[in-house]
């Protein structure tokens, strides 16, 4: 029974809130129960931002995530903040392009993904969040398919930004392939 509690975290501007929302839309398209809740307000502007996404087969009781089963962290302060909270046996995907230290937990599965490097080598300096999404979909294929994610990119992003989607899709694929 699918019930994943996911935290996306990073600096404001790294696109963690929208990455979470796109993932939620993709999963919703597959008929799964989803919720998305951002950190908001002062935290949005400059500091660390995060959102909690729950994806489940059954109706979601609490959308608030105290102990995530999956964490995707794009910067070091977020690693410091969320690594200790991950449930035992959970998953951590961290952005090694921007995080110098190694995670210390040994009771979780850790994936090192150079999200910014993947993004930049595909022609965008802004799609690190998409690289992380790609990696996540490979690690946890039950969350959503790549196809659903592509649909979400067009339904969840305003039309004027659709021009970025070819690169977004490419970066997601590269992030996906990065995980062996």
């Amino acid at each position: 029974m699918l019930h994943e509690k996911i935290i996306f975290a990073g600096f404001g501007g790294q696109g963690v809130i929208s990455a979470g929302k796109l993932l939620a839309i993709a999963a919703m398209k597959e008929g799964k129960e989803v919720s998305h809740i951002p950190s908001y307000g002062a935290e949005m502007r400059g500091g660390t931002a995060n959102c909690a996404v729950v994806i489940a087969d059954d109706p979601i009781a609490s959308a608030i995530v105290h102990k995530p089963t999956i964490c995707i962290v794009l910067n070091e302060p977020s690693l410091d903040k969320f690594e200790p909270l991950i449930q035992e046996g959970g998953v951590l995907i961290y952005n090694s392009s921007k995080i110098n230290r190694k995670p210390v937990r040994t009771d979780i599965t850790v994936y090192e993904v150079p999200c910014n490097d993947i993004s930049e080598s595909n022609g965008s300096i802004r799609a690190a969040n998409m690289a992380a999404i790609g990696a996540l979909l490979k690690v946890k294929p039950k969350l959503a398919s790549l196809e659903s994610m592509n649909t979400a990119l067009y339904e969840g992003i305003s039309e004027r930004n659709h021009k970025h989607n070819p690169i977004n899709i490419k970066v997601i694929e590269e992030g996906y392939k990065f995980i062996n």
Binding site: K21, A24, M28, E33, V34, S35, H36, I37, P38, Y40, I60, A63, I64
Partner: peptide
Amino acid sequence: GFLGQMSEP
């Protein structure tokens, strides 16, 4: 605030 900010289907 949680409910107002939360997204759900």
